[in-house]
Simulated assay, not measured.
Amino acid sequence: MLQTLQRSRTPSGAAYLDQGEGDETVVLIHGVGMRIEAWGPQIERLAETCRVIAVDLPGHGGSTPLDGPPRLEQFVAWFGRVLEELSLGPVNVAGHSMGALIVTGIAATAQDKVRRVALLNGVHRRSEAARKAVMARADEIVSGAFDREAPLSRWFSVEERNSEAYVLVRDLLQAVDAAGYADAYRAFASGDSIYSDCWPRVTRPALFLTGSDDMNSTAEMAQGMARAAPHGKVVVIPGHRHMVNLTTPETVNAALADWLTWEVENDT
């Protein structure tokens, strides 16, 4: 049975979890179809030394949907409001998949709110073939006639299909609100190039992490963003796919803990 974590809500209706304390605060944003619980191993580990805030995307978990159909820019503006409502900033922000696109948008448009930035399994300038495929999936999801288990074959290897991570993600996909899922997926499908030129201007320490076998958030994408960012570093975890934070949590937790030690330069 899916275990639900206790949430609070901001005045505008964003659901969030707030755990731990420390000199650093980390805000976590999950991907399409997921919710706060998808960050379980990271929340547990990081809260040992940091304040950790995990947020449900609009229309996911306990968060109020956005007026639709929202584009990626509206999700980025929403996240900026969440940071303001929680009186956060500059703060460390880490996003997975769709969350990584939102983190990119914040780094591009409100760098003053950011201390460090981490993209887990982030997409960047899809190929034309990949763009057509993801837009086709978006159209299917928006139609309401979609297979909630279809992402699992892309996100997990055959060997992982009896794992706790697989079961958790399958259950989260089954539970997600169809309209919220459709809104977020449409923004995800069309948003990979909106802020893609920002990285040369992002002066904050930036981590780009993915699995070597992720078919959509590829190692090449992570490497390209890291090369463009003045203080970018890439971590590619061999043998893992899209849900790398759940399939090898110790490795991801170690990478995030290291990221939180990277020196932050003051703006001049």
Results as ranks from 00 to 15, higher is better:
residue 58 P to G: 06
residue 201 R to A: 14
residue 21 E to W: 07
residue 181 Y to E: 15
residue 49 T to Y: 00
residue 60 H to Q: 12
residue 229 A to W: 01
residue 74 Q to A: 13
residue 92 N to P: 11
residue 212 S to N: 09
residue 241 R to I: 04
residue 174 Q to K: 07
residue 39 W to V: 14
residue 97 S to E: 09
residue 190 S to N: 13
residue 147 D to I: 02
residue 50 C to S: 13
residue 148 R to W: 14
residue 66 L to F: 06
residue 55 V to C: 09
residue 259 W to Y: 05
residue 173 L to Y: 14
residue 177 D to Y: 08
residue 154 R to K: 11
residue 184 A to M: 11
residue 218 T to L: 04
residue 73 E to F: 04
residue 137 R to W: 06
residue 233 K to Q: 14
residue 242 H to C: 08
residue 72 L to Q: 04
residue 121 N to W: 06
residue 155 W to N: 04
residue 205 P to F: 03
residue 13 G to W: 01
residue 58 P to K: 01
residue 72 L to R: 00
residue 120 L to W: 02
residue 157 S to D: 15
residue 103 V to A: 14
residue 239 G to N: 08
residue 258 D to R: 04
residue 56 D to R: 00
residue 59 G to H: 01
residue 263 E to V: 03
residue 237 I to R: 00
residue 218 T to K: 00
residue 53 I to A: 04
residue 156 F to W: 06
residue 150 A to M: 11
residue 69 P to N: 05
residue 97 S to V: 01
residue 65 P to A: 03
residue 217 S to W: 05
residue 159 E to Y: 06
residue 80 G to D: 15
residue 142 V to S: 09
residue 51 R to A: 11
residue 250 E to L: 10
residue 28 L to H: 06
residue 12 S to W: 02
residue 117 V to D: 12
residue 14 A to F: 00
residue 227 R to C: 10
residue 141 I to T: 09
residue 243 M to P: 13
residue 116 R to M: 05
residue 93 V to F: 10
residue 164 E to R: 05
residue 124 H to R: 02
residue 264 V to E: 09
